[in-house]
Design a protein around this nucleic acid. Structure first.
Length: 421
RNA sequence: GGAGAGGUGGCCGAGUGGUCGAAGGCAGCCGCCUGCUAAGCGGUUGUGGGGGUAAUACCCCACCCAGGGUUCGAAUCCCUGCCUCUCCGCCA
């Protein structure tokens, strides 16, 4: 969420910045609502002031058993008027809030301007795609003969876009999760295992709601949402709290299942493990001082890359352009892993700096030693990594001519074997 | 699922509808004092919004789980929701 006052005082800057991401900011509408709200606020505050003063007088008079009927009459009127204004004010405040909640974040100045993924900028590559002396297969053509993934039965049990992992498939899923968590913990991230169903406020806090209801699974009766990423519960750990300066930075890592509706992606990645309604992911989340957040973003992406480097999987890093960034992000790097079966790089991690966009929504503040007032922390997060897609990358990059798959060196202690056959 | 108790400032905890942003204690900070990181004394210590200032100061409004309501006036009364705890039942 953007700061209402900042928007009010920097209308043009805000509008130009949002235009870069293809978002037309309804400027006049906002200023109208906001202006009305402010003037109404002043009016009600004056009335309340009057009410407080006179009520106090009435109290005094009553204690002296004096007559207060004229004051009482006036107050009756003031009170009625206040009730009216309060109602209007409440509506306007709700309207302003909703308005602000649906405005995306302002891109950082270092973000390339562009319309869509065509204009993302590659910034580095790591590793060399392996030369195959045979035609490399898609991961599902590797997995199904090995009987480690069963899509047909998953469809019977649940439906399309679900997978049933079996034997070494299941084991590899677990091995990756442990390997990733262990690696991050060594680097100073604290391990978290959060709730994977959350309330509405949490979803608003990180920016999934109110705008993207369509992308979430919701449980109806007691109302809960299934998390689309651990970012949601982990970032909301400090919702409505004030941290101390010395608490920062805070690094968390969490493994969770993630659930996404994938509405609007019909026809995309219909086969295989790439796009599922349920998938596993290890996430990295940071709470940092504003002045450090861009440096922290570089460290974050590097910690995510570390997983791929240790698995010896070739990848590249790209900066998302203004038109391709997520709603809440000020700057996002994607890591794309090389998939020989598709002969292209595919997203496996997304690392973003949200600056104070999420912390303002969620009320995550901190207090500087010796300074008055509070500031919003900056929040960041990134996948470290998407487990299903990492498994895909391993199958495709480590496949052998005989249909077996070699297990990457670092994973062998976790997997209990050096080869799936 | 059934029965009951409760949600107050960083923590503990009091609060008769008006003088309560809220007693008291602890912790913290600043002084004083005491020759040694103990005790004592005095002061001070929340958040958000609006106004004001060069910046402080200062003024106003709101906040005692949340949202409604009653009242001239609500931390205090009423309703709803959320959360916590205890007992019984059930259960991984």
């Amino acid at each position: 969420m953007l700061d209402a006052r900042y928007v009010r005082e920097n209308v043009e800057t805000v509008r130009n910045a949002l235009q870069k991401r293809g978002y037309e900011f309804p400027l006049a509408e906002f200023l109208a609502i906001d202006g009305k709200r402010i003037s109404l606020l002043k009016e009600t505050e004056e009335l309340r002031n009057r009410r407080n003063t006179v009520s106090e007088e009435i109290g005094k008079l009553k204690r002296q058993h004096a007559d207060a009927s004229s004051q009482l009459a006036e107050m009756k009127e003031v009170s009625d008027r206040l009730k009216e204004l309060d109602e209007k004010l409440r509506d306007l405040e709700a309207e302003t809030k909703t308005f602000l909640l649906t405005i995306p974040n302002i891109p950082h100045e270092s973000v390339p301007v562009g319309r869509d993924e065509q204009e993302n900028k590659e910034i580095r590559r790591w590793g060399t795609p392996r030369q195959f002396d045979f035609e490399p297969l898609n991961h599902w053509d590797i997995a199904e003969p090995l009987d480690i993934v069963d899509f047909d039965r998953a469809a019977k049990i649940a439906g399309a876009r679900f997978a049933l992992m079996k034997g070494m498939g299941a084991r590899l899923e677990r091995a990756l999760m442990n390997f990733m968590l262990d690696t991050h913990v060594t680097k100073g991230y604290r391990e978290i295992f959060p709730p994977i169903m959350v309330n509405r406020d949490s979803m608003i806090g990180t920016g999934q709601l109110p705008k993207f209801e369509m992308e979430l699974f919701r449980i109806a009766d007691p109302e809960f949402y299934l998390i689309p990423t651990a970012e949601v519960p982990v970032t909301n750990i400090f919702r409505d709290e004030i941290l101390r300066e010395e608490d920062l930075p805070i690094y968390y890592t969490a493994y969770t299942p993630c659930f996404r509706r994938e509405a609007g992606s019909y026809g995309k990645d219909t086969r295989g493990l790439i796009r599922q309604h349920q998938f596993n992911k290890v996430e990295l989340v940071k709470f940092v001082s504003p002045e450090d957040s861009y440096e922290e973003l570089e460290k974050l992406i590097s910690d995510a890359e570390e997983i791929l480097r240790r698995l010896d999987l070739p990848y590249r890093v790209i900066t998302l352009c203004t038109g391709d960034m997520g709603f809440s992000s000020a700057k996002t790097y994607d890591i794309e892993v090389w998939l020989p079966g598709q002969n292209r790089y595919r997203e496996i991690s997304s690392c973003s700096n949200f600056e104070d966009f999420q912390s303002r929504r969620a009320g995550i503040r901190f207090k500087r030693e010796g300074k008055k007032g509070t500031e919003f922390v900056h929040t960041l997060n990134g996948s470290g990594l998407a487990i299903g897609r990492t498994l895909v990358a391993i199958l495709e990059n480590y496949q052998q001519k005989d249909g077996s798959v070699v297990i990457p060196e670092v994973l062998r202690p976790y997997a209990g074997t050096d080869r799936i056959k």
